[in-house]
Amino acid sequence: MRWLTLMEKLRSPLMVLPAVGVIVILFFGGLLVGLQQSLGYFPAIDSYEVTLRYYQDVLSDPIFFESLWQTFRLALLSTVMSSVLAIALALVLRDTFKGSRFFTFMFQLSIPIPHLVAAAGIVLLVTQSGLLARGAYALGLIAAPRDFPVLVFDRAGIAIQLTYLWKEVPFIGVVVLAVLQGIGPQYEEIARTLGANAWQRFRYVLLPLIMPGVLSTSIIVFAYVFSSYEIPLLLGVRFPTTLPVLAFQNYQDPDLAQRPQAMAMSIILTVIAIVLLIAYKRLAKYTVSR
């Protein structure tokens, strides 16, 4: 009997153990090594002294803050725009009509497409000599490539955001669609009979219901853009770039003494990501409970 209760007690921990084990060993193990080196413990270059110097170096470097701001700005803008567009399009797509399955499939099309392929596609469209510029030339809107607006390799990172929008709108949209389908039309019917207009039905009935899904999906999107490496590398400017690119450049510097600084940068990046997550969760709770 006691054996059985013990088994019962251990069952759940045993079930989560493999997943937790793999993540702790690989992810947190990797993080720990990074932390060690960021503190200057780096036997490969005969450095054993524990110091906060590298954190000071990073935090006194204006380039770090410019990259941080660029990373944050790109992530925030992409997330907000994706969320708004996703809600709007999901509302259009949720009705069942002739061909709705086809349109839903087309809407989801970009979900499985790798970000690199999306980046290649966006570049072909939006450079100053890209397909859009050629269309504008054919229509007589521009006379030469340089008349076309600058959308790529720009400081604002427009092509980067377009790539993320194209990828993430359907991702959030599919979650919203799933929630909408789970709700069904009853609530809105009731609101309608109570005299609510279309905007009120959306604002006071639908939005509160879909908001939890949108908020937590948008955390994932935010985190994804925040960690982006290859997209800003391909479509962005060399300066200012994103933090992951900056950290990796430092990491790959042939001067091994740059390593601890790269590690310090990534530890700071980790702390920022976790703080943002906690803040976001608080905010989400607050918004939803209202």
Binding site: M263, I267, T270
Partner: peptide, 24 residues
């Protein structure tokens, strides 16, 4: 705690842990 542990890798940039793992 387990839920948190398993969510952190989604939030923290993959490159961060990879650099440490690389060393190991």
């Amino acid at each position: 705690a387990v839920e948190w542990l398993l969510m952190v890798p989604i939030i923290v940039p993959g490159i961060v842990a990879t650099m440490g793992i690389h060393q190991v």
